[in-house]
């Protein structure tokens, strides 16, 4: 199946992916509402674009207490049905790479409630890939035997942990779910 592949060493931290993702999905530019999210540690010039890579485990699916709020679509991508999501954020906590984001400002979001949101792969033609000037994002067809996908996930998880630890050391992290 089609998957987003990330090459963090090529990322320049420009946020073009966040700009176009939020514009495309929310009609406004707001990196807070982007489905792809660049974790930045500027002091180390380390930038990590984080987005759902369709891992094997799909801990998010198991963590969701609501019937039908998370499902797997025809592309094999886990998708959040935002109208059914109650904003309990259990899926976001289950995802170790922070690929699910949580809009917690109750009553102010587009659904008038808190909700979680994630990448839906733009029906197979993601706008972030088109916007990325550095080639740090790509769509690749990776067979869904779980193995390769799980490797992608594991790499991201390690990188993620490393950067967040750096940030943590300098007390730059208030909320680990909103780095």
């Amino acid at each position: 199946m089609k998957r987003l592949v990330i090459y963090p060493e090529l990322c320049s931290g420009c946020s073009a992916c966040e700009v176009f993702c939020s514009l495309h999905h929310e009609g406004k530019v707001n990196p807070e509402l982007s489905r792809i999210h660049v974790i930045k540690d500027e002091a180390h010039a380390a930038f990590l674009p984080v987005v759902c890579v369709s891992c094997k485990n799909k801990a998010c699916l198991a963590a969701c207490p609501e019937q039908g709020a998370i499902y797997i679509n025809h592309l094999g991508m886990t998708v959040i049905e935002e109208t059914l999501c109650t904003g309990c954020s259990k899926c976001a906590q289950a995802c170790e790479i922070h690929a699910i984001r949580f809009f917690k400002q109750s009553g102010r979001g587009k659904w008038g409630k808190a909700f979680c949101f994630k990448c839906d792969l733009c029906a197979g033609d993601p706008i972030c890939v088109k916007a990325c000037p550095q080639g740090a994002l790509a769509v690749k067809d990776i067979a869904d035997d779980g193995e390769a996908a799980q490797n992608l996930y594991e790499q991201l998880r390690q990188e993620c942990t490393r950067i967040i630890e750096w940030l943590d050391e300098r007390s730059l992290v208030k909320n680990r779910r909103a780095v």
């Binding site: 176009f20 939020s22 406004k28």
Partner: peptide, 20 residues
């Protein structure tokens, strides 16, 4: 964290992507 809204977001998206 409020973001910026535009008058014609779709048109702007196309124009901007083309410029990029």
């Amino acid at each position: 964290t409020k973001g910026i809204a535009f008058s014609c977001p779709q048109e702007l998206e196309e124009l901007s992507l083309e410029m990029h």
